[in-house]
């Protein structure tokens, strides 16, 4: 048995852990998003991941690609805000890598992460340094690749990815927003952390705190 393999049950546990984190941090996200955005991020993230947990068992698919595809669509249909859409895009892009697989190794995870980054850049038209979710997502995904290269165990990999995402959130404080509603604040956005990057860091925190099979 290989401890560094992810299966359907692990994905369920990760989502459940993310959902708990989002629920705990709902007010914090709402506060961050109200300062620069439209204030719905806390509610949409906690609602979105809660629905994924509630509906998980109704999604019948051993093919993890199909599973992620259906979860992405479920999230998208229920949380069609910009951030909800972009996270759904991450699921769909990852699903393509997972197509036909019943379990995922760490290389798969790194490829999925990269596909998610590419998808968000392609569809969202943003890049690193624009004070968006990418400022947390890109360093976290880089950590997934680095972990493969260095042969880290899964648990350490997720811990590293979360640390890098959290560092990305810190970095976002120094940046000026150029996207979305936050862009209207221009120079005034410097000093506050990006809510989208924060949500990404919370997702990686949830993954790192999950008790895997």
């Amino acid at each position: 048995m290989n401890d560094n393999i992810i299966g359907r049950e692990d994905i369920k546990r990760m989502l459940s852990s993310i959902s708990k984190v989002m629920n705990d941090e709902k007010d914090h996200l709402t506060e961050l998003d109200s300062a620069m955005g439209d204030g719905d991020l806390g509610i949409s993230m906690s609602k979105g991941f809660q629905i994924l947990c509630d509906q998980f068992d109704t999604v019948e698919a051993d093919d993890l690609g199909k599973l992620l595809m259906k979860l992405g669509m479920l999230l998208n249909a229920n949380v069609p805000s910009t951030m909800g859409t972009l996270i759904s895009i991450c699921f769909i892009k990852a699903a393509k890598i997972g197509k036909g697989k019943k379990e995922l190794n760490q290389e798969d995870l790194a490829l999925m992460g990269q596909a998610a980054v590419d998808g968000v850049m392609e569809r969202g038209k943003a890049k690193v340094g624009d004070k968006t979710m990418l400022d947390a997502l890109v360093p976290a995904v880089d950590a997934l690749s680095k972990a493969v290269a260095e042969g880290l165990a899964l648990k350490e990999t997720f811990k590293l990815a979360y640390e890098k995402a959290a560092e990305g959130v810190e970095t976002s404080k120094k940046l000026k927003a150029v996207f979305g509603r936050a862009a209207y604040y221009g120079d005034k956005s410097v000093g506050s952390q990006d809510s989208g990057a924060t949500a990404i860091a919370l997702i990686f925190r949830g993954i790192s705190e999950a008790e895997l099979v």
């Binding site: 992405g72 669509m73 479920l74 998208n76 249909a77 069609p80 859409t85 759904s88």
Partner: peptide, 14 residues
């Protein structure tokens, strides 16, 4: 159909 003046979800378009 989305909400008022808001794009619908791609899952629904699919």
């Amino acid at each position: 159909v989305g909400n008022v003046f808001t794009s619908p979800a791609f899952a629904d378009m699919y």
